[in-house]
């Protein structure tokens, strides 16, 4: 499969989703193409995580159609989908004392037969990704003994080992310090540019979004307020409408991208 050509991955048409009679997402129309980094932005409870769940088939739409590579998402086998789409959850928790390496190796599960074990290439991939994510230094340590940031890096490593064409990030770096947050996103971004990986990231930090995302999708109360290329839609009036804060967007020479500053509106 040639991953460098940009083709359409998802098509969502008039998708509604509600949880226990509470509407979470409504009338979502969305087209996502490969090889791009998308940011999903919006206040708490605006439906970001649910949208990710819909994209990877963890939740099914009540109304409307979701297609992945032109096939209805619900017609995909869970295993085939898992070979293509990986998710890094917000708060990655592991029960029982599995070692870091064991947890990362779990990412190979969708590629393995029921009775086969990891191939040599599989091991090599695991080694490479673990080194890349900087978790090789504590490969044998129990995951339950890691700090929040270390655990999150293990989660990203596990998703990358899955060798997906799409990486979904659900606030995956929110709990990390600036250095690790930036370096992990930069590393993922290199895969977007170099290998045509597609990223859809629910993200809180507008500046991180401005820094890494090609396109942004703004959600509020389960509806898409605005979507488009980052430079076009990251505008003060959009931020004001979505978050209810006054904002300023300016070019920043130091970080070489737009930066946002904000304040509460005067009472």
């Amino acid at each position: 499969m040639d991953r460098t050509t940009s083709d359409i991955l998802w098509q969502l048409e008039q998708v509604d989703f509600s949880y226990k009679d509470q509407p979470v997402l409504a009338e979502i129309d969305l087209t996502l193409s490969s090889g791009k980094c998308y940011g999903i932005l919006g206040p708490n409870g605006s439906g970001k995580t649910t949208l990710l769940d819909l994209l990877c088939g963890l939740a099914a739409a009540d109304k409307g159609e979701i297609r992945y590579r032109e096939t209805l998402l619900k017609q995909w086998q869970a295993r085939e989908l898992a070979q293509r789409i990986a998710l890094v959850p917000q708060d990655f928790q592991v029960r029982f004392g599995f070692s870091v390496r064991e947890v990362v190796e779990m990412g190979r599960h969708p590629h393995l037969g029921r009775f086969s074990s990891l191939t040599e290439q599989g091991h090599a991939l695991v080694d490479a990704v673990m080194a890349e994510m900087g978790v090789d230094g504590f490969a044998t340590r129990s995951v339950t003994r890691l700090s929040g940031g270390e655990k999150q890096r293990v989660a990203v490593a596990r998703a990358l080992v899955q060798d997906p064409e799409v990486l979904l990030l659900d606030e995956a770096t929110s709990n990390l310090d600036i250095y690790h947050s930036l370096s992990i996103l930069a590393l993922i971004h290199r895969r977007v540019v170099g290998q045509g990986l597609t990223v859809v990231a629910a993200i809180h930090d507008l500046n991180l979004a401005a820094y890494f995302c090609d396109e942004l999708i703004f959600l509020k109360n389960g509806r898409i307020i605005c979507q488009g290329p980052t430079d076009e839609v990251l505008r003060p009036h959009v931020i004001e409408e979505v978050y209810g804060v006054e904002a300023q967007v300016r070019e920043d020479a130091f970080s070489a991208c737009n930066q946002v500053s904000y304040r509460l509106p005067a009472a």
């Binding site: 963890l58 989908l81 070979q83 599960h109």
Partner: peptide, 13 residues
């Protein structure tokens, strides 16, 4: 052990 949601994204039913 990594939770139901994370397991489901690895294709575990």
């Amino acid at each position: 052990a990594t939770g139901e949601r994370a397991a489901a994204t690895l294709g575990v039913n």
